[in-house]
Design a protein around this nucleic acid. Structure first.
Lengths: 330, 330
DNA sequence: CTGTTAGCGCTTTCAC
DNA sequence: GTGAAAGCGCTAACAG
């Protein structure tokens, strides 16, 4: 049944109308008499006709493709968001083309180029460090997440990472911790930086000394960073990791060293990836709600694709208390 | 700089040749005199010309799109494979269009329909339960994974799940376990079923009684299944989970019940997702090498897209011993 | 309301 | 070798 798919022309012939009319009824782009509508629909049905998106795109002068640059398909934080966006976009004529940027500016620029070649009509940035400059004059609207962006045709959904990290650190302090380290990362965008700032602020205000080491936002970096933290200060009682993956990596190191969590060291993550709740002990973390984020981003995409402006409702970042943080007495 | 991209015509004019010639040099589709080649290349350079994939596709009568149906973008097992495939495809003219099937036949058929509409030239199935029938007469080559498929234009990379599960169960038995439960799932393809068979075979051969309960391949299903296992047989000493997510879910249940792993109950997973090594305790599991699988699948895709047949080298499934299984004495 | 006529940007015969 | 011309399948004025 590999026979060539029917064209609009065949449908037209079978319905006894012109191709233009078929196009009109299919796209609802103009009024068509009742009977012809029926005839066309019937013919479409009979032939099992589906318009060729390629031809439509060429004729309409648009690609109906939206580009998505994300850090990595395997990211436990971004992949659920991608999933949601894909679903939301399914009901629209737009199709996502997702390419990984791997936290590397070079790769991100390549991805940008690739997407541009494919004439995507809008761009969504998930976990990239692309700056406003590189996105200026792209000629297409850009939506970012995780890094505040601004400029003509550029918007971003930026959550209060600084504030959330500040509160998370205060939470640790309120639990009696005094020696609290933060595992940050040089990768990532402003969100990562802001978490560091929030941490610093809370520590400073409490008159505590900050201890910061750097991972790479992945488990393995968290593992090494944890080793570093312990080398720098064997007395730490709490570690605030910039994201859950980092916390999970740190957790392994502690496990291997036989250091109990949270009895000896408390662990606090960020993101609340699906697996955070399944760690042992379940990870206390700052929740970035994937569902809400994905929907907001998809809405924004739809809005800009129709020439509008996105409207972002603030999405709160709340602490999810589980078992990885314990109260210590002074 | 939102000025319309240059067309082949402008390039031709600037190079003092015909569009046909530009096309020829760009596609190497016919010999062109040295000087004209230079002129064309120069013009392309000057104008920053990139051919429109849409127009090319229409003219060539192909879409250069390959469809991928995967269970879920957020799947910790499939998303790394998707990542690898995407990377491998980047150097080809083909672009992947991935859509989630959510382990639901209905969704999978919808996805199939969607991809067909978009005229994908080949199909890759990752973790679907689509059968050969539904794929027959699609008119395009199909590559599957996780479910043996066969038919005209249909191939699949199928690993020895049965054998691997058989050996994994034997491993547990060799470690002294007698009461070993298996958490399976009604979801998924033959791979899931084969793991169950491998488990049963090993149990039978050892004269042990099988205990099987069902989850849904996700953490939450593993959690509930673990509760069920314990209700059915409070004396189990080992649980072989059909995949790591299930094992991780089971782990949480045990954690909440205060049942130590592996001291009281040993846990064995399947897949070796990236996070398996980071569980507490690190999960002993059967490794399905994502890198090798992704590359093999990408190779196969490239082969069939060029009209060839894929050649699969066997990919071994090996047990990765970590800390979640302990030896028990009789 | 609806058919006719041009394209959209590129490839591919078909002649020269 | 290379240009002219005819599409690929569909949409969008433009006349009726």
């Amino acid at each position: 049944m590999s026979r060539p798919r029917p064209t609009i022309e065949e449908v037209a012939r079978r319905a006894g109308v012109s191709p233009a009319t078929v196009s009109r009824v299919l796209n609802g782009t103009a009024r068509v008499s009742r009977e012809k509508v029926r005839a066309v629909l019937q013919a479409v049905e009979d032939l099992g006709y589906t318009p060729s998106p390629t031809a439509q795109n060429l004729a309409r002068g648009r690609s109906h493709a939206v580009g998505i640059i994300l850090s990595d398909f395997a990211s436990p934080f971004f992949s659920p968001i991608l999933e949601i966006i894909t679903l939301e976009l399914e009901e629209t004529p737009f199709r996502p083309i997702a390419v990984p940027g791997h936290w590397s500016l070079v790769r991100e620029l390549e991805a940008l180029d690739f997407l541009r070649k494919h004439q995507v009509e809008a761009l969504l940035l998930l976990g990239t460090s692309l700056t406003t400059e590189a996105l200026q004059n792209l000629g297409i609207p850009v939506i970012g997440f995780g890094h505040p962006l601004n400029g003509k045709q550029i918007w971003s959904l930026y959550l209060e990472n600084r504030e959330a990290a500040y509160r998370a650190t205060q939470y640790l302090i309120a639990k009696g911790h005094r020696r609290i380290a933060h595992i940050s990362s040089h990768r990532g965008g402003m969100d990562i930086r802001d978490r560091l700032l929030g941490y610093r602020k809370a520590m400073r205000e409490a008159g505590l000394e900050a201890l910061v080491v750097y991972g790479n936002l992945e488990e393995e970096g968290g593992y090494r960073a944890m080793a570093e933290v312990l080398a720098l200060d064997p007395e730490v009682t709490a570690v605030f990791a910039v994201n859950d993956q980092t916390a999970i990596g740190a957790r392994l190191y502690l496990y291997e060293r036989g250091i109990p969590v949270p009895e000896r060291i408390s662990l606090l993550g960020f993101d609340d990836i699906p697996l955070a709740a399944y760690q042992v002990p379940p990870l206390t973390t700052v929740r970035q709600p994937a569902q809400a984020i994905g929907q907001a981003l998809a809405q924004a995409l739809k809005a800009v694709l129709e020439g509008g402006k996105p409207e972002f409702q603030p999405i709160p970042l709340a602490l999810v208390e589980r078992d990885s943080v314990k109260e210590v007495r002074a």
